[in-house]
């Protein structure tokens, strides 16, 4: 365990989303944003539960789900490692799409839109664009 974990999880008990799903979703989000890359180690169950006070089996369930989806791999005695990136590098900090979106957000603000307005607008367009797709 020489290498330290690349991310940490934040558990929101009031979100209504099952705790193990929060871990799955946050891992995927980190993969999309390039915060996690292939070869990175996820925190051990011990590390996660010590920081979040959730049940160890919840962490293991989340990791099994990520493993089932082919995103991570458990290596006996070593930990759980990322095997695959998600969504390419399109979401990384320096990617062109992100820059364009940041530019658009800036213009929306300058036009007098509040944060909630921008969020609602973005979600509406997103829903329209991906209409009919299955959400994962």
């Amino acid at each position: 365990m020489a290498q330290s974990a690349a991310v940490e999880f934040r558990i929101d008990r009031r979100s209504g989303v099952a705790t193990y799903l929060q871990i799955v979703q946050q891992t995927k989000q980190a993969l999309r944003l390039g915060l996690l890359e292939p070869g990175d180690r996820l925190p051990t169950a011990r590390e996660v539960v010590e920081a979040t006070a959730i049940n160890p089996n919840t962490v293991l369930k989340a990791y099994r789900e990520l493993e089932r989806e082919g995103l991570v791999e458990a290596r006996r005695g070593l930990g759980t490692f990322v095997t695959r990136a998600l969504g390419g590098a399109a979401a990384a900090d320096d990617a062109p799409l992100r820059a364009e979106l940041a530019d658009w957000a800036g213009r929306a603000r300058a036009a007098g839109l509040e944060r909630d307005d921008v969020s609602a607008l973005f979600t509406a367009v997103l829903d329209k664009t991906f209409e009919g797709d299955h959400t994962g």
Partner: peptide, 14 residues
Amino acid sequence: RHQLMGALMAESAE
């Protein structure tokens, strides 16, 4: 409470 619950969970995990 959070810290000690975390310590208990870590004990159970390990």
